[in-house]
Design a protein around this nucleic acid. Structure first.
Length: 159
DNA sequence: GCCAACGTTGGC
DNA sequence: GCCAACGTTGGC
């Protein structure tokens, strides 16, 4: 069977909470704690092998810093059942879990990251959603043409 | 620290 | 089903 073309995504995380270096150390991580339906639905449409730009948010400067890859899909987010987790959801049940997640795999860090400010100079919100003012979505698709252009600018990710 | 944007909740 | 109140995200 022919390999399907990967889709591209952008996923935000705060470097103090879980940054690209955490992923570099762990290699694999569960992208859990997503409590937004739109973001969850994007995760549901992910395929193993899809690529995602790792975006550092809530920091100076917010930037695309690395690349990762979807390694497992359709996983139930365990934090929704954990009463001690800040992501605990009392309205979710094991019989009918509300939140799921994917497993991501480290690919590499870009030699030179691209800041949000620079992204705004290059792309319109139609070309790259994250530059849209007030965008709070933490997971969003990236158009193939934009993704290819980004990869050209960012160069080869360093493992 | 401020606040714009916007998703969610709950009263009606 | 509307919408006001509230909470959160995240840039600045």
């Amino acid at each position: 069977m022919a390999q399907q073309e990967p889709n591209y995504w952008l996923m935000k995380s705060e470097p103090d909470v879980y940054g690209i270096n955490h992923l570099k150390q762990e290699v694999l991580t569960l992208w859990d704690g997503i409590r937004n339906y739109q973001a969850r639905n994007f995760m549901r449409s992910m395929q193993v092998g899809d690529k995602a730009f790792f975006y550092h948010s809530n920091c100076k400067p917010p930037s695309i810093v690395g690349l990762m890859e979807v390694s497992k899909t359709g996983l139930i987010d365990p934090t929704q059942f954990d009463e001690n987790s800040k992501y605990f959801d009392e309205k979710s049940s094991r019989g009918k879990p509300r939140w799921d997640c994917v497993q991501m795999k480290y690919v590499g860090i870009f030699n030179q990251s691209i800041s949000l400010e620079e992204l705004r100079e290059i792309y319109t919100p139609e070309k790259l959603q994250v530059v849209k003012r007030g965008n709070r979505l933490s997971i969003m698709p990236v158009l193939k043409t934009t993704a290819n252009d980004l990869l050209k600018r960012l160069g080869k990710p360093i493992v």
